[in-house]
Design a binder for these strands. Structure first.
Lengths: 344, 344
DNA sequence: GTGAAAGCGCTAACAA
DNA sequence: TTGTTAGCGCTTTCAC
């Protein structure tokens, strides 16, 4: 592995500006104890020379770590890549670097990544993706993050409530409610749910929303077939096959995210089942391709890019006594994959 | 921004193992000059204590930088997020960190990002996305990367030939040829091309392939309408609108990437033009949704995830005298968006 | 307001 | 084979 070469150092800037190392450092850090003119001159010179501080030296000397660690399940899942896009935007504006690593939807692996990031002394950790309903699974990560924060690190979560850190929380329950109401409003009584594994809070929250909608109509989630699979297209395919086999009377499939909905649509197409004439389908998230599918997908829009931005914004604020929570809002986007329940 | 807290240091490990700092350093780095037993004991102790080296101190002291800088146009473009997925996989296996930044399809911004990464002392730079046909545009980046390499950095490009560095090169020309042959074989004579801006080598290479196919049939690219737009869905929409307006006799649209093809399909759907009965459409890349569109998209598959892996693999090898080139291979994937040219 | 000097934790010469 | 020591480039006391 390569070694860094000789480059512009702060002394060079200081020399050119005719000040001491310490003054130059203060000026560039924007700390006070430097006269305005001197500070300006230093910044000017630094600009001209194209000086960029060596982050290793800076961090080692007890300065700020300017790197953000972002933990996602899988970067090539559009949900996460859009979030990452938002994070990278803000980071770019702030001159921060973003390190991305995969947790692979696996709590143990996630914990390893977390520890690695902490050992690497990142300044900020952003952790995205559903949390686990079982508090024991979250406990270690929570502990690790708490220690990290006590040592001065900053943390924000995206889509997890039980980590004891600042969090951006998608409107999962409200979104589930909106989808449920939408399908019920179209006259669907035989609704099946394509869900991910039950241990995820995202799944539980979205289901709770659906349940709330059903209860408004004097029904409940218990009556619906819920097939548990993965939050992926393949998961959607598997769930759809099972629904078609075990619950042929179904007129609407509610997939708990868009990836699953895409898998559901593919399966229905393979079975030559008309959407929405014979079967309505809804997803969740509104990833960018949702509008380009055929039929285009009715779904709940979450502002993924903004969620990434919000998370980093939160983490850039000083830590507060209590963990902050930011709700994302949501929008029901009605497209062509849903229609009135077929009349028999 | 936070400061790192007090943590385990190498001296602590050395002390516990009853050796000096230097010996401990050597033992953990796996360098020789340490007896096997001592080395083992040090590693043992380090393990037990859960010691992880401080990368800032390590790098500052002239050690290896273990971070990889990955420059992509836009991480939430599936082409790039799949590449990033491959890079992150390999990096995870090697214990490397991946820093991702956006160039935003803008040579100047890309140059800034490059300089920033270099200033940040990353050890490896991976640069993905089409290069520019104008050598002057590439010149600065090329120069910057050459200097970086001379200082011991490693670089690999994905999809760019003119950077003078190791490169993973997608089969753009051969893929273009395959698509051209496919459409001509279906009897299409009125083919229009939805291309991105002409300054990109990817565009030129793919067009060259199409031209080669045409020439085999006694024709040439000059006869075809080529609409230049962006490598995005919106770009595809704009191009399709223009093609429909100016070249209504067209029976096949060849989009130079899948994003554009998706935009083209959306536009055709809006115009109620049947695909493939009245119009065939092809894309390029085979992003994962291509198979889930309706109609599913005929396209050329590039192994994006592998391309990411290959690029990092290349960069991890020692630099060779001449820049290496790895071709990716490609596969024509025929799906439902192409059919025989309509007979009049 | 400014400068001199002491580290931060590590690697790599240089000694032993 | 092992230990000692001088930096790497920066931030931050502590003097002035």
């Amino acid at each position: 592995m390569p070694k860094p070469g000789p480059r512009l150092r702060l002394v060079d800037v200081a020399e050119r500006a005719g000040v001491s190392l310490a003054t130059a450092s203060r000026a560039l850090a924007g700390r006070d104890g430097v006269s305005a003119e001197v500070a300006d001159r230093v910044r000017q010179v630094s600009q001209e020379l194209g000086y960029v501080a060596n982050p290793y030296a800076r961090t080692l000397a007890g300065g700020a770590s300017s790197t953000v660690g972002l933990v996602v399940h899988q970067i090539d899942d559009p949900y996460f890549s859009e979030i990452a896009g938002g994070v990278i935007q803000v980071a770019g504006e702030q001159g921060l670097l973003v390190q991305i690593c995969h947790s692979g939807r696996n709590p143990e692996h996630e914990l390893r990544q977390l520890r690695h990031l902490i050992a690497q002394r990142v300044g900020i950790i952003l952790i995205a993706g559903s949390g686990y309903a079982d508090p024991r699974v979250e406990a270690e990560a929570k502990q690790e993050l708490a220690t990290f924060q006590d040592l001065g690190g900053r943390v924000a979560a995206i889509g997890r409530h039980f980590l004891g850190v600042d969090a951006v929380l998608p409107d999962n329950e409200a979104g589930g409610l909106a989808l449920g109401e939408h399908l019920l409003g179209l006259g669907h009584h035989r609704i099946a749910v394509a869900a991910a594994t039950g241990g995820l809070t995202t799944v539980l929250d979205r289901l709770a929303g659906v349940d709330a909608a059903l209860r408004r109509h004097g029904r409940s989630l218990d009556e619906l077939p819920i097939v548990h699979s993965d939050f992926t297209r393949d998961g959607g395919r598997i769930a759809a096959e099972q629904i078609l086999r075990d619950h042929p009377e179904t007129t609407a499939i509610l997939a708990l995210n868009d990836s699953m909905a895409i898998g559901v649509l593919a399966t229905l197409r393979a079975h030559r089942i008309a959407v929405p004439e014979r079967m309505s389908v809804v997803g969740f998230n509104d990833v960018s391709v949702a509008s380009d599918l055929a039929p285009s997908l009715t779904t709940v829009r979450l502002p993924m890019t903004d969620m990434g931005r919000m998370a980093l914004d939160l983490a850039l604020k000083p830590r507060s006594r209590r963990a902050r929570r930011r709700s994302t809002g949501h929008t029901l986007v009605i497209r062509d994959s849903t229609g009135p329940a077929p009349t028999r």
